[in-house]
Design a protein around this nucleic acid. Structure first.
Lengths: 205, 205
DNA sequence: TAGATTGTTAATCGATTAACAATC
DNA sequence: TAGATTGTTAATCGATTAACAATC
């Protein structure tokens, strides 16, 4: 038993498939095909079939895929058939928008804890949460068993905050600070920076 | 003359290099190497050299790269040695955070216009801008010559808003709405959705 | 000069696509 | 059954890496 890991680039497409399936369910649709999904997403049908075939057989020849069945299957693969609690660190404009954002629940996440180091913010309420002192962060996150965090602090603090999160047991970090974090290999980091995307597109203008 | 276009995957890494170089400049550094950049970014030195070699020769054997020289070169390649005006459509929590965000100017962008269709928001001020009526959007953006926009409206409106932006002459859209937009091929779209990234990471938890 | 590091070539590795037998 | 579409194989295409001559 020494299965090859599934390529990360394939894992990265699953949430995109999931989102499209979700929209189809909401539109009352029952079945779809790799062809249709491909047109919608700008991905080749062959690639979609190949991606899915890594995880099992979800379709029927001649008919295609049952949408809600495939949705549930992908949810299971991505482990978002459960709800993950998230800690948000840094309650500036971005952190506040995250805390107020309503779209998490449907998709497997729930903001559970907010932290900031600014005394004028600690104790204030955002949505139905109270901002807690970053100084207590490690203990609080550890005790809550939280594995997923979003970092929205200024650049100079981002690396140190991320290291604290790792100490607290966090294994997945969505990093809003425009800096590349250096963390142990077993911690998953995704950078989330609008400027990176804008600068990518201007090349083509 | 029929030069092969430079792979998009390489273009996508340039903003990451640029960001690291920027930090190095701020730290007062003069020169770096593909080795050092690679360690910092988790990218192989060979790849960095190969990527850069697509655009010219920026380094010196034995010494490496002059940081500010390479930074300026990449800025030029990405066309962020100028400032691009951006229109933001949809002034909810996310749109407001974008409008208030201070980090654009350094990196080649400036929020210039805000739009919403909600009468209770039209006319209000955010930062030093007044929210304008989406009904006027096409004309205003066209007249301003704006080519870059951020879409932060609810999912049901996103496709229609994007089509209006395209009619107004916009060629690059950063899409915050969790839905895949269908637009002409000459319009560049990047999706910007935190949930996609979170769902990617949970696979590994 | 000696040491370091580039830019580039060739080899390797991995991802995408085309095509089709299987089958609903 | 006939038509449609899957899952999978093999071929193609593209990206990454290793290695090294050139040279600062």
């Amino acid at each position: 038993m020494h299965d090859k890991p599934i390529p990360d680039i394939i894992i990265g497409r699953l949430p995109i498939y999931l989102l499209a399936l979700q929209h189809m369910v909401q539109a009352g649709r029952q079945v779809t095909s790799s062809q249709e999904l491909g047109e919608r997403l700008g991905i080749s049908p062959a690639q979609i079939r190949k991606d899915l075939s890594q995880f099992g057989e979800f379709g029927k020849q001649g008919t295609g895929y049952n949408i809600s069945y495939l949705r549930d299957a992908i949810r299971g693969i991505l482990k978002v058939d459960q709800v993950w609690d998230i800690a948000v660190v840094g309650i500036g404009d971005i952190g506040r928008a995250i805390a107020d954002y309503q779209g998490f629940a449907d998709r497997g996440f729930r903001v559970a804890l907010l932290f900031d180091s600014d005394p004028s913010k600690i104790g204030t309420r955002i949505g139905h949460f109270t901002v807690q002192d970053s100084a207590q962060m490690e203990k609080v996150i550890h005790d809550a068993g939280i594995k997923v965090a979003m970092v929205a602090v200024p650049v100079p603090q981002a690396q140190a905050v991320a290291e604290q999160l790792v100490k607290a047991g966090v294994k997945a970090i969505l990093n809003y600070a425009p800096i590349t974090l250096n963390l142990p290999h077993d911690v998953h980091v995704e950078d989330f920076d609008p400027l990176i995307h804008l600068q990518h597109m201007t090349y083509y203008l």
